[in-house]
Amino acid sequence: MTLSAPVTPETTTPVLPPGDDGGPPRRVKRGGKAGKQLRAGWLTYTILAIFTFGSLFPLVWTAIAASHSNARLAQSPPPFSFGDRLWHNLDQAWNTANMGKALFNTVFVAGTITVSTVLFATLAGFAFAKLRFRAKNLLLLLVIGTMMVPPQLSVVPLFMAIAELGWTNHLQAVILPMMVSAFGVFFMRQYLVQALPTELIEAARMDGANSLRVVWHVVLPVARPAMAVLAMLTFVMAWNEFFWPIIALTQQNPTVQVALTGLGRGYVPDQGVIMAGALLGTLPLLIAFAIFGKQIVGGIMQGALKG
């Protein structure tokens, strides 16, 4: 099943002119962008504002819920404004859930997974996009086919293997199975097949560069925007991964999502604390979005799959 067929970009987008200095060729095209762009009217702003509100509201409400007591949350109508227990609930969630260690672990896990996924996906994506080798199409199909394996059931055999290795409750148990991603390979391949002018590689070859140098000096600079996007997608995904970590890890050495499962402690589950936990688990990503938002979004802008 050549899923690649529909998304193969060569069929539509005209081949880019090679950048004359070997820099990212994209810019050449971006030049004339301003020209005839349509201007947004009030209707546009209104629609966008509504959707922005819809995007942000559940998050804001999570914060509101996290600032109230169990008894207040149980009343009707639900609270619309912030209460006075936000710090108390956050503190409670932080302490009962082993959050300090969980955050450290999660940054480490998600960071490692991100670096390796992006690196390996770029290499493989480049090979699939621009190099010629035997069984290439078959192998690419295999990669895409692996995206279709339903992840839940891998848990049992995977855990048997992990246990055999004595890795239960160790971070490598959640890192190693996620070190590569078929989506990533596919993503990078789709980008590079179109964004990386073959002439650039040939020119580098002419100058006597070996494969590694080609990757370093030609592929990576071109691939950077897509790598940034893939990094963000992977990091967020790894951060929020839940199903496998809760089996492989325990709360003695948790990731954020595992730690959060221990929140309903005390005599009675405290909704406010649980919401505070949900907030704590999301907040670091939101802060990162706020800080790097422009770069991340900019990266997506440049690097998204055009084809």
Partner: peptide, 14 residues
Amino acid sequence: LAVTACSSGGDSDS
């Protein structure tokens, strides 16, 4: 093991 020779983000033994 072969694949991952040197990647232990390990942690203290419980």
